[in-house]
């Protein structure tokens, strides 16, 4: 991870920055306006990739948590922590961009559609994870507690998915099929979506590496402090 960070850390901004500008160009200048929904549909090119990044965050948290419990190495704990913070940011972006689209299209800021329900539950798990870390302090025990939550949270995802589907499925469907999932008529729409998706993933990786470096330095400062001033 350290070695990856040493070249990807400085290199990635040069890819992510222009990449994001390119994404904006594609979204606003290239892609045709969706016939039924109009201009507001374009927010999907941010909304969906943000959801991917949020989900990626969850995957990284759970894998790093499991590796941490297994090996006891602090490096994995830092990865889990950094990924949770980023996951929280992207999950919040998803929850903010969703209603902006939903208001004109569905006529309501919020509906209890399965996907929305699932996202908001994931958000609360991220929130609990970060609060646990902030209340608990920096010692090893808290790292282990957080890892347990990271793993249990991942185990919960299939159950949450099944139960919210069944729950809403029992009611008459208010909403038709949502766009963004195979409903993209124009090939340039699909290309833009995947291109922005890639940009978001790279942005995620870059931010993760930066955050990891900060956490590692914090840890080293703590060790140096203790060496100079033994308790």
């Amino acid at each position: 991870m350290k070695r990856l960070g040493s070249w990807a850390g400085p290199g990635l901004p040069w890819i992510v920055g222009p990449g994001m500008l390119g994404a904006l160009y594609l979204i606003f200048m290239v892609v045709p306006t969706e016939r039924v929904q109009g201009i507001v549909q374009r927010i999907f090119y941010f909304h969906v990739p943000a959801a991917w990044a949020a989900f990626l965050g969850f995957v990284v948290v759970s894998v790093a948590s499991a590796l941490f419990l297994w090996s006891g190495r602090a490096a994995y704990d830092r990865v889990a922590r950094a990924a949770a913070e980023l996951g929280m940011i992207f999950c919040t972006l998803v929850l903010l961009t969703g209603p902006i689209w939903a208001r004109p299209i569905w006529g309501a800021w919020w509906t209890w559609d399965p996907r929305l329900t699932m996202t908001v539950i994931l958000w609360t798990i991220y929130a609990a994870y970060l609060l646990l870390r902030s209340f608990g302090g920096a010692d090893e025990a808290v790292a282990r507690y957080a890892a347990v939550l990271g793993i249990v949270g991942a185990l919960d995802i299939p159950l949450i998915m099944i139960s919210v589907r069944l729950w809403r499925g029992m009611h008459p469907s208010v909403i038709g099929a949502r766009p963004g999932e195979g409903g993209l008529a124009d090939p340039s729409m699909r290309f833009t979506l995947f291109y922005t998706g890639l940009c978001f993933v790279l942005l995620f990786v870059w931010m993760l590496l930066v955050r990891l470096r900060v956490l590692r330095v914090e840890d080293e400062i703590e060790a140096i402090h203790r060496r100079i001033h033994p308790a």
């Binding site: 609360t124 646990l132 919960d156 919210v164 069944l166």
Partner: peptide, 14 residues
């Protein structure tokens, strides 16, 4: 409650 409630949401729904 902060830790438990999100996790038990599928159980509560069911």
């Amino acid at each position: 409650p902060l830790l438990v409630l999100p996790l038990v949401s599928p159980l509560l729904i069911a």
